[in-house]
Write a protein that binds this DNA or RNA. Sequence first.
DNA 1: TCTGGGGTCCTAGGACCC
DNA 2: TCTGGGGTCCTAGGACCC
Length: 405
Amino acid sequence: MPALKGRPLVVLSNNDGCAIARTDEAKALGIKMGAPWFQIRHLSESQGLMGLSANFALYGDMSDRMMTVIGRFSPVQEVYSIDESFLDLTGIRDDLTKYGQQIRKEVLRDTGIPTCVGMGPTKTLAKLANHMAKKKTDWDGVCDLGSLSRQELARLMSDIEVREVWGVGRRIAKRLNEMGIYSVFDLAKLDPEKARTEFSIVLGKTVQELRGIPRIALDEMSEPKKQIISSRSFGLPVTTLPQLENALSEFIATACNKLRRQDSVASTLQIFIRTSPFRKDKQYGNCLTVNVSVASSDSLAFTKVALRALQQIFRPGYNYAKAGVMLMDIEPAVGIQQELFPVEEEVEKRVGLMNTLDAINARFGRGALKTGSIGFHDRENWYMRQERKTPGYTTNWEEVLTVRA
DNA sequence: TCTGGGGTCCTAGGACCC
DNA sequence: TCTGGGGTCCTAGGACCC
C-alpha cells in the first residue's frame, strides 16, 4: 500500500493474534517478530502504529504478478516463497548490478512493490547478498558479490552475525557461538567436513555454499506437496463436538481442494484438536492418524473419516483453541485407481462431483458449495477474527481498487 | 480477554528380514 | 561359556525455512 509508506505498520496473523510482518518503522519501535497484538496495541495511540489483518488472497495474487515480472529476466526461475525468487543469471553479459536495478525498476513499475536484489555464485551467497542489499542504504537495493574484492567481501561478512545465514537457526547459532564462531566470515572459515560431522549434512553444505561451491540446486519446477495441512486457531474457545465437526469439515474441504489442485491423492489423514497452552485451564490435546484403504482426494470420503476419528479423541469439558487436519502419503492421482482396480462407476461419479464442486467454488467464491457437515450457522463461534482487514483490491469484485481522476 | 500457519529435510532408533 | 552380520523400512522428533 503505497499510501501507507513511512508509517509504522504490522501485519497480524490469524485472529489478529500477533505481528507476522513489520515495516522498518515498526521495527524501530522495538516490535519483535511474533509479538502478540494485545501487548503492542497501546502503541497505536502513542506512536501511530497500524495493525492490519493478514489478507492472504491479496498477497498471493500480488506475489503471482511480481513473480511473472521477475521471470522475464531469466529462463530459469525458482519461486522460493511468497516474496522470494531465485534466477539463474548464467551467461548474462550485462553489468549485473545494472541488471538488478532493471529488475527492481520493472517490479516497482508493474506492481508497486519495492524489492532488493542480491547476486552470488550460490543460493546461500545470493541470499546473503540480498541481506546486504537491504541493509546498505547507499547501494540502491542491489548487491552483486562478484563485484567486490576479496578483502571487501571478508570485511562485510565479518560484520554480519552468523544467525543471518540461510540454514542457521537459533539453536545452531548458539552452538556455533559456543565454538567461537560469531560472524558469517567465521563460519565460512570453518572446515566443511567438521561442520558436517559435528553438526549435520545440511550445515556442511551451507559452509561450502558460503565458500562459493554450489551445493543447493536451483529447483525450477515446484514439486507437488508431500503433506498438506489445514488448521486454525479459533476466534473464541470452542467446547462442543458439533462446532469441532464444522471446523474439521471445513479444513478437510480446504486440504482436499489443495490436493486436487496438484492432481494428487492421499491415503493417510491425521486430525488434531487441542486447548490453548497459554491459558491456565485444564489442558487436553490429541491427534489420530488414519490410513484409508483407497487413496483419493474425495472431500466427502475424508470428511467421514475425519468425523469418525474426531468422535474417538473428543473429550467434553475443555475449551478447545485449535484444530486441524493433515493429509499425508500423497502421490500423483494418475493411473492409480484406474490401473490397479477396475474403474467403478461410483469412483468416477465422485471424481466428477469433486470437479464440479471445485468449479462452482472457483466461480462463486470459496464455500459457495459445501458439505452439510460444515454447516451454515455457528461459524461466528469459531471462525477467525479479522477485524482489521484491508480490502481484496485484486481478488474481490466488491473491493476492487478504483482510482479517481 | 487477546499468543499463526504451512511446509521441508535429516537423523536416530526400533521393527523386521534373511 | 559361547549368542552374527548386514540390510531396509518406518516413525518420531528436531532443526530449519518463510
